[in-house]
Simulated assay, not measured.
Amino acid sequence: MHPNPLANLAFPSEPIVFVDLETTGGTFGVDRITEIGIVEVGPSGVSQWSSLVNPQKPIPAFIQQLTGITDAMVRDAPTFEQLASGLLERMNGRLFIAHNAHFDHGFLKDEFKRTGLRFAPDVLCTVQLSRAVYPAESRHGLDALVARHALVPSARHRALADADLLWQFWQHLHRAHAPDVMRAHLDRVTRRFRLAEHIDEDTIEQIVAGCGVYMFYGENDAPLYAGRSVRLRQRVRSHLVGPRRSAKDLRLAALVRRLEWKATGGEIGALLAEAQWIASARPAHNRAPKSRSGDVRGAPWPYSGAIAIEERDAASGQRAWHVIDNWCYLGTASALAQAGALCSGARASAFELSTYRILSERLARGLAVTPLVSGRLAAAN
């Protein structure tokens, strides 16, 4: 696992970087960076670096007026692609600190992605930090911090000058508050991406928001952990990113190299798919299910053949049909007409204790089912 860069706080044992950008506007994927300023702080002291960046597009007039950066100033400046390799080396492995960090981190991540480089540092937003330390205050913009904490700007809306203001704010916090208090605030607001180095935010954003199951894999593609959730994307992110993770999640995240996920169309589908995945893959970090005296292995199947159970995902509104035969979960179809194709005599002969546990009481209480006969709807015969 990575060392904690916050261990020595104001001058940490691992370098940290305060970063600010100027851009042609505020839209990711459309606007481009015009200036980068970095203040690096570590055990050897403080260093500064900045560069104008040719955005390869005109700078709007109101942005030129705000920042003082004109088209003429950036015409002969290096492009981001020309700076990318050295810039990544300068920031790689450092805690990334910025004001409204989603903006600066997002722009840099997009620019690095254009050049084929991955940028996924741990991120600390000083807006969130200010709110955590001073919850009674209503304003946390950079101008408010300058006024409230007597910070000294050398300029405004220029990248290096604003990055230096963040360094000044950082020093103020550590002078004004006890180390254990600051450590607690910093741990709470830091978004940790680096503990799962092989999975970035782009990967997590591809996961469905609603019901589903997921599997983490480690070295040599060994199954580590399977889980389920009615908010799948949020659940996976909570394992790998964010400040409020358990010690178990921290240990697990350090081992993860790959993940798989499946949408299940509902909570029952997630229960069935998770149980089957755990039984077949036996992930190292899942507890083995305990047998119960009330379970009856080989309990009689109360239907003449396969059935389909309909569910609707509350998050997406999409419907799904889960196919079961002889207490064996055969899969989920997105349309009832496709459910029959999941029927297989060979698979249906295998009794699954987990499926029996999940469904026996629900079926006894009158869960709505659609019988399937010979791979077709029973009503069609």
Rank of each mutant, 00 (worst) to 15 (best):
L259E: 06
T264W: 14
P223D: 08
E40A: 13
D249V: 02
Y214E: 12
P283S: 10
E201P: 00
G212F: 13
R233V: 00
V181N: 11
A320V: 02
L145K: 02
V152R: 10
I199A: 07
R131Y: 04
H105T: 05
R175V: 10
P135N: 11
A247N: 05
V39W: 01
A348N: 12
E205M: 14
A348E: 13
V74N: 09
F96R: 01
A379T: 13
L330S: 11
E310G: 03
L272S: 00
P121N: 08
A275Y: 03
G294H: 10
R365Y: 08
G366R: 06
G86A: 09
G42C: 12
W167C: 08
Y217R: 02
G265K: 11
K262N: 03
I324V: 15
L359C: 09
Q234E: 13
A144G: 08
L240D: 00
A341I: 02
A196L: 06
D295M: 10
G212D: 07
S50T: 14
A346T: 04
F112D: 08
P78M: 11
P223A: 07
T190L: 09
G116D: 06
I16Y: 06
R347M: 07
N4H: 09
A346H: 05
G331D: 15
C343S: 08
D313Y: 03
G141Q: 10
D164V: 02
L359V: 10
G269R: 07
R191S: 10
A254T: 15
S154R: 01
G210E: 01
A288H: 11
A101V: 03
G141T: 14
W327G: 04
A209Y: 10
E35L: 03
L224S: 03
V236C: 12
D200T: 11
F119Y: 14
P243T: 08
I307D: 00
G375Q: 04
D31Y: 06
V127L: 12
V146L: 02
G269D: 03
D180E: 13
V296T: 15
E352D: 10
T27Q: 15
D31W: 01
E352H: 09
E219N: 13
H239S: 02
A247R: 12
S229F: 05
R245I: 01
V39Q: 00
T370S: 08
A380L: 08
F11Y: 09
W301P: 02
V369R: 06
E311A: 09
A339E: 00
H177C: 04
G305C: 09
A98D: 08
A161R: 07
P300Q: 15
V181Q: 15
E205D: 15
P302V: 02
A306H: 09
A335V: 05
F96D: 07
W49V: 11
R75W: 09
A368W: 14
A120C: 06
G366P: 06
I358A: 15
G212S: 13
P15K: 05
N286Q: 09
A101I: 03
R139L: 11
N54C: 04
S360A: 15
S229I: 01
H2Q: 14
G266F: 06
